[in-house]
């Protein structure tokens, strides 16, 4: 496997961890895409508590207080027990004093310090995982130049989870859609989502393959063919979101085929491919 300079720089400074119960662990790949996992953290062992406090800090430092940080019990029930948390960490002895302060490492802590994580839970469909958190502290560690840490974390995480299809939900206006759209055409499962606290959310899925993951890992474009779009959706156009949702519920299929782009009439628009049920 080719590891480009980008990944080598990260892997020379940080190593992967996985959070897993003993029950779930046999179902994980501990060397995803050939990258060995250094730390396996069992959430049911109480001496690992400080590591989980750190993950909560990682969540807060990444998304900020306005970013809906996850409560501890949510981490337990929605991440540690049902699925896996995959990420990168640095041994505390390899952090500078300034980095320990920035990362809020408590005095006396001797273990690995997490700097990124990807969380997904399995769904009722075999091989389909729902990702709900991708956090990276790359921007807080500028001297290390860890560009691509978030993408590498997600790619190796999906491989570690043995995911065959990845799902997620985000808002039509979210900047994260620019990153998600790199994965290839995103199949839309919902376009208007009242089951989510923000109905202006879409639910998407994309097929995970080792080819896709390897391509993403080295920063190449997704190997998936991108079909041409046949419709634009303005990011704030709720009427069109509702109309598209109605089409989906009548059996239409739709994809977000590329990244959002600036609209000639102002604002941002998203390129879609929509196929009516009869096509």
């Amino acid at each position: 496997m080719t590891i480009l300079t980008l990944d080598a720089r990260i892997l020379s400074q940080a190593q992967p961890f996985i959070v897993s119960t003993r029950l779930n662990l046999p179902n994980a790949d501990l060397a995803p895409l050939g990258v060995a996992t250094r730390w396996v953290i069992d959430p049911l062992v109480s001496s690992n508590a400080e590591f989980f406090f750190q993950l909560q800090r990682l969540d807060r430092l990444t998304f900020g207080p306005e970013g809906m940080p996850m409560a501890r019990w949510v981490f337990t029930n929605m991440a540690e027990l049902p699925g896996f948390i995959y990420g990168f960490a640095i041994p505390v002895t390899e952090l500078s004093t300034a980095e320990r302060v920035v990362l809020e490492v408590p005095a006396g802590y001797r273990g690995p310090v997490s700097i990124s994580m990807y969380i997904a839970v399995p769904t009722r469909a075999a091989g389909v995982w729902f990702g709900h958190n991708l956090a990276s502290l790359n921007s807080l560690l500028p001297a290390r130049d860890l560009k691509g840490l978030g993408t590498l974390t997600k790619v190796l995480g999906l491989a570690a989870f043995r995911a065959e299809t990845a799902m997620g939900a985000t808002q039509w206006k979210s900047k994260a859609l620019h990153i998600h759209a790199r994965l290839g055409p995103l199949r839309l499962l919902t376009a208007w989502t009242p089951a989510h606290s923000i109905p202006q959310s879409l639910t998407y899925s994309w097929p995970v393959s080792s080819e896709t993951l390897r391509a993403l890992k080295v920063g190449s474009p997704s190997p998936h063919k991108r079909p041409a779009s046949n419709r634009w959706l303005a990011e704030g156009d709720e009427a069109s979101m509702r109309a598209l949702q109605a089409e989906l519920e009548r059996g239409a299929e739709a994809w977000l085929v590329a990244r959002p782009e600036a609209s000639p009439t102002g604002g941002t628009r998203l390129p879609l491919l929509v196929r009516a049920p009869a096509e």
Binding site: M78, P82, P122, F130, H132, S197, S201
Partner: peptide, 19 residues
Amino acid sequence: SAMVLPGWVFFDCALAPGF
């Protein structure tokens, strides 16, 4: 008990993956 599910968690971690 301060264990209300945040709205997005109700969707991402309950309704979508399970029941």
